[in-house]
Structures are given as C-alpha cells and as structure tokens.
Design a protein around this nucleic acid. Structure first.
Lengths: 341, 341
DNA sequence: TCCGTGGATTGAAACGTTTCAATTCATCGG
DNA sequence: CCGATGAATTGAAACGTTTCAATCCACGGA
C-alpha cells in the first residue's frame, strides 16, 4: 500500500518549502508560475491528497454542516435534504446527513458526534419540543437552526411551515365535503408537528360546531403504524366510526389506505383520507392522496442559508423565524367522483 | 460565547497532566479512582468535548465509514443504509451518507471529500461499471466495497443481488401470464443494474422463443422518468404496443402507473407492470405493484461487515463477492382478478 | 534500612496543516 | 553605485490529541 503522502513530501520533491506548497493549495496567485507548476507536478506524481483533519485542527472548525433528520425513510426529509445540499454546495461546504430514526437517544448521539466534529452548524428537526443539548450547542457557539419546527424562544433561528394552518386546511376541506365524524391519526404527540397539525384540525372542527376529533395515536409516523391504525379504525362499530381521517403524514395515510383495501373498505366512499407532506408517492397511491403540501426544497435551502449566515459570524446576527404557508392538494382520496358510484 | 476548552484546560483545573486526562478518556482503568473523579468533575464543569479532528490527525484515520448512494430519494437505498448503520454502530463507527444523485461528477466530488477525510472505508453503489477513482482509493489502502453491484475484477469486495436472475424472474412471470409483447423500461444503461436486469429479462424471452424486448430507455431511475416513458408507451400504435412492462425499479413503475391512470389505460388489463426493489410504497401503489424483492437491510449489513473486516487490517484479507437471491412478489399489477372484469 | 517492584503519573514528541513574521533577492529610481 | 521597494519564499509556531518512555512513590520483603 502507498504510504501516506504529506505536504512535506511534496515540498521536498518540488524543492520548495512547506509554506509554498500550502500557498499553491490555498492562494495560488501568490506563487510564481514556474514554482507553482513544479509543485503541482509533484502533487500529481505523488498522488498527494490534503489531510482534512489537519486542516480542521488548524482552522478550529470543519468545512461541513450537518442535517439531523427525524426519519431518513420519509421521502419528505430527503427532499428537504436536497435543498440543504444545494445551498451548502454553493457555499463550498459538505453536508453530513444523520438519521435520528425517531429515537431520542440516537438524536443525542448524533449531536454529540457533531459536537466532537466541530461542524460549522447544525440543522435539525428535533424529536422533542426543545432539545436541551441543541440549545447548549447554540450557547457554545455552534449555530443550530430548527427545520420544520417553529422555535419557541428566540435563541435559535427556525424555518417552518405553519402546521396549525395545515391541519386547519385539511379538516376544513373534510368538513366542507360533508364529513362530521373525523379522525386524526398520528403520534407520538411528543413530536410538535403532530401536536400542531392536531391543533389546527381541532380548531376547524370547533369552529364548525362539530364534535371533537377521534384521536388514534400512533407510536411512529410510518407506514406500518398507519396500517395498524387502520385496523383499529375498522374495528369500531360502524355507527361511531369516523367517515374521514386526517393523517399526520403521508406515510401513515398510505398505510391506512392499505389497511382499508385489505379490509374491503373503499376510499373515499367508506372513509375519506387526507395526508400531509404531499410526498412524491402520494400522487401514485392506491387512491391518489389528498395531502397538505409543504415547500420541501425551499424549506431546506432557506434553513441552510440562515445557518450559513449565522455561521459566517456576523456579530449582529438576529435570530429569525421564517414561516411558509402550506397548501392543500385535493385528489381522489377525498372526492367521491361519479365514476365511483 | 464559551471559549474552546481543551484537554490542557481540564488538566490544569484538575491539577493533573495532559496525559492523565487522556487516560481518563481512553483507558480509565489505568487511572486511580480519586484522580479519575477529579478529572471527570473538571470535564463536566468546563463542558469539555473532545476535538475529533485532533484525534483523527493523531490516529491517522477517522472513526467513520461512508456510504455513497446512487439516489437518496430512492427508499431502496435508505433501507440499505439502515443496515449499514446498524453494523457500523455495533463497531462504534459513524456513517457518513453521501448522495451522488445519479451524477458522475457529484460521485467524484464525494469520493474526493472522503479521501481527504481519511475515512476508514467506503461503501458505494457506483454509477458507472468501474469507478477508477474508487479503485485508486482501494490501492492506496482505503477499503472500498461495492454495494448492489458485482465486482468484475477481484480487487474489491462486493455485495450484490443477482440482477440477471431478478430480470429473468420478472419476465418469466409475465410470459407465464400469457404476455408476448413485453417492454423493458429503464436507464441509463451505464448503470449496471439496468443492464443486468435487462439481460435477465431478455434471456427469459429468448428461452421462450418470443420476440425481443421493446426497450424504452430513460435518463434516470425516477418517478418522473417513469411517467414520461408511460406517455411514450401510450403513443405507440396499439397493435404494436406491448401488453406488459418490466421496469428497472419501482420508482419508474410508480411513474408508469400514474401515466397509465392519467391516460385512461387500466393496469393490468391494458398493461401489466412489474417493478424492481419492492420498496415499501410498491404495496401501497394505485395498483399494488408486482415487484422483485431484494434483501435490503441484509445487503447493507453484510456490506458494512465486509468493509469493517477489511478495514480492521487483517493482512490475509481475501476479497469476497457475496451474492443474494432476489424474490418475486406478485401483486395486482400483473394479475387480472375477476373482480376487475 | 535498603532494594526491588509495580502502579500512577508526567512530559514531550508527533500527527499534517496553515499562517505570518522574517528573509532573500532582483529591480528600479536617484 | 546605493538604498528602497516589493514580490517570492522560508521556517517555525500553533492547533489538540494520543502515546510512550521516563519518573515518581509507596510498600513489602530481605
């Protein structure tokens, strides 16, 4: 195996000093052309590759930001990540993608890892309302931006979509379609998005003078949990069974859809379904899914920009809270077409 | 903001030397209990967090491996990644997840980044058949394991699923269902999986004495491309139009499904569809999708184990090529049920 | 009392880079 | 011909950790 090649080796080979090689690498314009060529040749011949750890150590911080995601299996987050990467690439920074898997302990481990890595900043969609460790990182000088989550205190930037409004939109749509017994499927309620979306839906029902939501709490926001909730729903006596369900995300809605089909119930005739996120697969679902769309890439891009702005160290940085508006996308899962009658 | 805290600061505070603090961190059993407690207290009081760059620099390599993925938007890869993370966590290593986005240039950039980071090893699903840069990394001592891709030469380990067999299974199923004009949708053909799956399907057709596949080449393995292919397919004169389509992955198949629905064609009556990967959304699709299932997590876990084995530096390491068998999962997209007549 | 033993601790070197003050050297104006 | 100028280059320090040979010290055995 080739031995590790350092700047020193390159310098010797090119007959110059350490510093000159470094200058070729970082400020080539300061180096006379013939010297530069000689150094570049030596680099190529030896196959020299910078040691990033050494750079970081010297610089005091890494050339990367990180995005800590709630559930990498949810296409919503991969779309947000695309936006993040886009913004980071423009700034010449790498992005570490870490997955908390809806697990507080893993989230904590991820943050510790990033702290040790001295990343320039962290984007995170936290599990709990407030993440104490993240707040601590922020205080110690590592900027943290909350993604898809409104910050309560003003101590950190945040980029979010108005989830209360989203829940309201979804429920209002169902109410206007004539539904009166409406279920909310989602959980755990420790996740703020779940609470907000529930709050919005509950608000809409109250406004319409309807009975409160039937809440089916799930233990995760995933397809399998949606299926399970569907089975519970089917088990209810039909007189009390809701005629419509609002799911806290599309994964749950897709699982619910599967359960309905399996149990021989029809969507939307027996049960109307609204999802949340409008992931790519929602439109391709068994019954194309009505869903609440969020500007995913924009969310990621904006969050990264906010982070970079804060990380660039402007002393007068003001924490900002950007909020986008969600948008209802109506599809077959809530509209009984004459075709289906 | 808190000033950075180094081992030195902790040592001063605890009234011991640098080395002792390091020992508390790395071999606590060598340190007398009272001393250890004092050091631990100092660490807590100062909020000391190890600087990973310095550790890496000293150690000569990082405590991480990386998984360079073809398309992070494809749930197939997130599932594989789960397996990778699982194995890596057991070994106490972090996993960097990088996305090539089906783009050779980004793939290259990702590998360069990892080279500079001196990661312990790299898992990659490369775009082109052979990745010269990856081979070079391997020669320079950074182990590289190919994921979901059989290595041609014996210079690297690989973990793959028999894609030729998978293609064969899919096509055979269609043939046995009575189809004779069969299309293959997939691309670009620079991706080996696409070629292998095509080869398997072609083999099955030849064996049955049927006319060759109608190939609709796509520029990416994504939903939008599937839709586009569907539109092309519908445009064919119906006498020549295939009655079944085998898609190189589920994303394409889901897009195809959408296009069919939009154009008013029925699946499987007008067109039977087989996908590949059996991602979670395949079962929840408009028409539940027949697909070729791969053991995703197992793939990731095995690949990571192979990598760790090689990275642990056993001199007698033999490159291995593990191959798993795919499995056909039949669903509604290829079976005309009497219900649908 | 002295020596040997071994556990605990120390102190300095080394990892590879960047940075910056110091140095060299050629050139140009006077 | 001298001194000033400034571009090019040098050399050493510093970043924070780990490691390891060296040192210290207490204790038990002779």
């Amino acid at each position: 195996m080739a031995q590790p090649v350092s700047i020193r080796d390159v310098a010797l080979r090119a007959g110059v000093s350490n510093g000159t090689v470094s200058n070729v690498l970082n400020r080539p314009e300061r180096v006379a052309a013939p010297t530069r060529l000689r150094v570049e040749a030596a680099i190529a011949e030896l196959g020299f590759v910078r040691n990033e750890s050494a750079r970081q150590l010297r610089a005091g911080r890494s050339r990367a930001i990180a995005y800590v995601v709630l559930d990498a299996g949810n296409p919503f987050f991969t779309d947000v990540a695309r936006g993040v990467e886009h913004a980071a690439r423009e700034a010449g920074l790498a992005v570490y993608l870490l997955n908390s898997d809806e697990n507080a302990e893993r989230e904590r481990e991820n943050l510790e890892l990033l702290h040790e890595q001295r990343v320039q900043g962290i984007l995170i969609t936290p599990i709990e309302q407030d993440n104490e460790y993240a707040a601590q990182l922020q205080r110690q000088g590592t900027p943290v931006v909350l993604v898809d989550r409104g910050a309560q205190d003003a101590a950190q930037c945040s980029v979010a979509v108005d989830d209360v409004l989203g829940g309201d939109l979804a429920a209002t749509h169902l109410i206007e379609s004539g539904h009166e017994r409406i279920a909310m499927i989602g959980g755990p309620f420790s996740i703020q998005q779940v609470r907000d979306r529930h709050e919005g839906a509950a608000r809409a029902l109250a406004r319409a003078g309807l009975p409160p939501l039937t809440v089916l709490e799930t233990s995760a926001l995933q397809v399998a949990e949606g299926r399970r909730a569907g089975e519970r729903l089917v088990g209810l006596p039909s007189a009390r069974r809701p005629t419509a369900a609002f799911c806290a995300n599309d994964l749950l809605a897709l699982g619910l859809l599967q359960a309905m089909t399996q149990q021989g119930l029809r969507v939307p005739d027996d049960l109307a379904v609204v999802g949340y996120d409008d992931i790519e697969f929602a439109a391709a679902a068994a019954v194309p899914l009505t869903s609440v769309r969020q500007p995913r890439e924009l969310l990621g891009r904006t969050a990264a920009q906010l982070l970079l702005e804060e990380a660039s160290g402007e002393p007068a940085h003001e924490h900002r809270h950007v909020q986008f508006q969600p948008e209802l996308v109506v599809r077959a899962s809530t509209t009984m077409t004459t075709l289906r009658w």
